[in-house]
C-alpha cells in the first residue's frame, strides 16, 4: 500500500528502529527470549518445534513463578517491564508507527520520574495490558505506510504476531490464552526469516501466515481511514 501522508523512514532509521525493537523485547522477555533465539537458530524441523514447546513450558513456569511472588515483588517486576516497554513505544512514536490517538494514549500511561508509586503501578498495569494493542496499531500502520520488509523479515507481520501474542496473553478467557504461545513463537520465527516454520507452528492453532497477511490487509485499510482524517465515534455505532 502506498504511503499517502508521510515520508518513508530512511534505511538507517529503520535499522535503528529494528535494533531498538529487538533490544527492548530482550528486556521484556528477558530469559525466555534468549532461549527461544538459541533454539530458533537451528529451527527447521519437527524436533525444533517440540523443543520450542519445552521452552514455552519453561516460560509458563516463569510466569507462574512471577504470579506467585508477593505483591510487592510483582509490582516491581511490572514497573521494570513498563519502563522497558517505554523505549519501544517511544521509537514506534518517533517513526510515526502509531496513530495520533495511540500517541496521546501512550503519553498518558508512560511512567514519569515524579510519579507516585501507586500512580506508577496503575500506569504500568495499563501499559502492560495495552502493549499488544499498541503493537497491533503499529503493525497496521507499518503495512499501510508500506514499510513491510526489513532485511530478511517482514516488520508488519512480526509486529502483528507479537502484538497478538501479548494481547492474548492478557485477556480473560482461557481459549485466547492458548493461542498466545503460537503467536509468540511465530513472531520470532518471522523475525529470523523462517516463514515456513512459522507456518508450521501457526498450523497447530489452525492458522497460517496467510491469515496474518489477511489481517494486515484488512487493518491497514482502517489505518488509512484514520490517517486521512475519518473519525468514527461510538455514536456512529447506533
Amino acid at each position: 500500500m502506498k504511503s499517502l501522508q508521510t515520508q518513508k523512514p530512511t534505511p538507517t532509521e529503520i535499522s535503528e528502529l529494528d535494533n531498538k525493537i529487538r533490544e527492548t523485547l530482550n528486556k521484556i522477555l528477558v530469559t525466555s527470549l534468549d532461549k527461544i533465539s538459541t533454539a530458533l537458530k537451528e529451527c527447521n524441523n519437527e524436533e525444533c518445534i517440540e523443543e520450542l514447546n519445552i521452552i514455552f513450558k519453561d516460560l509458563d513456569n516463569d510466569i507462574n513463578y512471577i504470579m506467585n511472588l508477593s505483591n510487592e515483588r510483582k509490582a516491581s517486576i511490572l514497573l521494570d517491564m513498563a519502563k522497558a516497554s517505554g523505549y519501544i513505544i517511544q521509537f514506534l512514536k518517533n517513526y510515526d508507527l502509531l496513530n495520533t490517538d495511540y500517541k496521546t494514549f501512550v503519553g498518558k500511561i508512560m511512567i514519569k520520574d515524579g510519579d507516585e508509586h501507586q500512580e506508577a503501578i496503575e500506569k504500568a498495569y495499563r501499559l502492560f495490558s495495552m502493549l499488544g494493542s499498541i503493537l497491533i496499531n503499529a503493525a497496521c500502520r507499518a503495512r499501510y505506510k508500506g514499510i513491510s520488509k526489513i532485511g530478511n523479515y517482514e516488520l508488519d507481520k512480526y509486529l502483528l504476531l507479537l502484538g497478538l501474542a501479548l494481547d492474548n496473553m492478557t485477556l480473560e478467557t482461557e481459549k485466547q490464552l492458548e493461542l498466545s504461545p503460537y503467536y509468540l513463537t511465530a513472531a520470532f520465527l518471522v523475525l529470523y526469516g523462517k516463514d515456513q516454520t512459522a507456518n508450521e507452528v501457526l498450523a497447530k492453532a489452525g492458522l497460517s501466515l496467510k491469515n496474518i497477511d489477511n489481517y494486515l490487509r484488512a487493518c491497514s485499510y482502517f489505518a488509512k481511514l484514520y490517517d486521512i482524517g475519518i473519525r468514527f465515534t461510538e455514536e456512529d455505532l447506533e
Partner: peptide, 23 residues
Amino acid sequence: IIDYYMCLNISDYKERHRNYCAA
C-alpha cells in the same frame, strides 16, 4: 465495520472492550 474501525484505531474503546475487540 465501524466497530472494527473503533477496535483498531481508538485506544480508549479498545481498552474498555479488550476481549470483545480481540474476538
